[in-house]
Design a protein around this nucleic acid. Sequence first.
DNA 1: AATTTAATGTGTTATAAGTACATATTACGT
DNA 2: ACGTAATATGTACTTATAACACATTAAATT
Lengths: 244, 244
Amino acid sequence: MSKALNLKTAEIEKISHLDYFNIAISVDCVIFGYDDKDLKVLLIKSDLEEFEGLYSLLGDLVRPDEDLETASYRILKERTGLDDVYLEQVQAFGSLDRHPSGRVITIAYYSLIDIRNHKLKLENNELHWHSVKTIKKLAFDHKMILDTCLMRLQQQVMENPVVFNLLPEKFSLRELQELYEAILGYELDRRNFRKKISIKDWLTDINEMETDVPHRPGKLYKLKAEHRKRSGVRRNTVTRVVSV
Amino acid sequence: MSKALNLKTAEIEKISHLDYFNIAISVDCVIFGYDDKDLKVLLIKSDLEEFEGLYSLLGDLVRPDEDLETASYRILKERTGLDDVYLEQVQAFGSLDRHPSGRVITIAYYSLIDIRNHKLKLENNELHWHSVKTIKKLAFDHKMILDTCLMRLQQQVMENPVVFNLLPEKFSLRELQELYEAILGYELDRRNFRKKISIKDWLTDINEMETDVPHRPGKLYKLKAEHRKRSGVRRNTVTRVVSV
DNA sequence: AATTTAATGTGTTATAAGTACATATTACGT
DNA sequence: ACGTAATATGTACTTATAACACATTAAATT
């Protein structure tokens, strides 16, 4: 891989090899979580002077020997310890000035994880969950990336059973509705919401009830196994590379 | 930009600078056209031995001093002579083995152009329009990229007034419906189609009729000016860079 | 033990959107 | 003048969305 790529036009060859490899490529993960009726995102304090005091998404350069999904899974694994996560590519961001130290094109992924039932190794990593709706500014173009990923999540939410990755295995319909409301940013009618969900036929009633709620407990449900796909990408080939 | 990026983890620094810049980044354009009731895509014969006899999408490496949209517009301009085109990013493709000569991550864009009313400088470029539905195999992973872009186009088509970029300025409802059918791959009911389009309120009746049709001519319509956005990206900043 | 509280669970009606389907009309070609 | 092939248009049926209220249950309070 040290010789020039013999790509397409002759024109390319005029320009030296190094010029073309002076672009770095990174992956940035918008890691969504859900807790306390609130959509969260996992952020780290930026270590760049230019962005002193600002937070940024979790990202890293892509290594020459790993593909994009592998890089994303590696970041998730390194930062959170998790390797069983939902992950989906959203968009590439490549403005010239998006990174102060040089040319870095980044591919954004969003990821959904259940905060409560996975103990993350957060503290030692300087990682923290931030409420999405209170975030005003981030390092780099990460606010734009976050917004784009949130929009994508909002689009997906009613068509695909993806949000269950944010919930524990068993949940009540109220919890599910609150999650939808947190993602969409507006309130839903309870009866219409339940009807819609029941038409989709995603859930099974497991004949258990909520406990420890200070009111009448609701029924608990599980996502049906056939809809449980933890990743938008082919995970069996990918996570092995990451987690071994 | 020749010194290392001071990015995130200490771990990165263990790996030499050159390793990280040994990934090239390209842009590939799926250029859709429409003619003869058929969705077409613009392809070029691959100049790589590995893909002898196969066609590939139009693409090129991204230059360190241009952003992704600029690179896409440059490719379109260089290859077709057009700079007033609809262009939208779809997805990044980054498998390790997708390019036989080395590691190249590519960002796929799709583009919509009106074949008939723009004279393209095709012949001297070895470019040809191919009917999308007859394409079985392409060089690299370009078949996958084409399929992904087509799916994206199909998704967009009913929600956004994008397909008008494939048609001449004035068109009949029949032409429009045939275009939708070509993109979606199935037939539509004429009355329902017209109702749906009229509800969207995208068109103005310009009080002209088709000419040179061997049957009763239909009315001609134009896309209303407020829906005429030739690009999914901010073009006023972008095309200037390309076309000046 | 009785009462209050706060949530669960459920159904109907009205409106809008989607689907299936048929007939009269018009310009061209012969 | 006539046949042809496409345009133009509307209605009934079905499905989805939206708005809306009341009885029930278990926990917490008195």
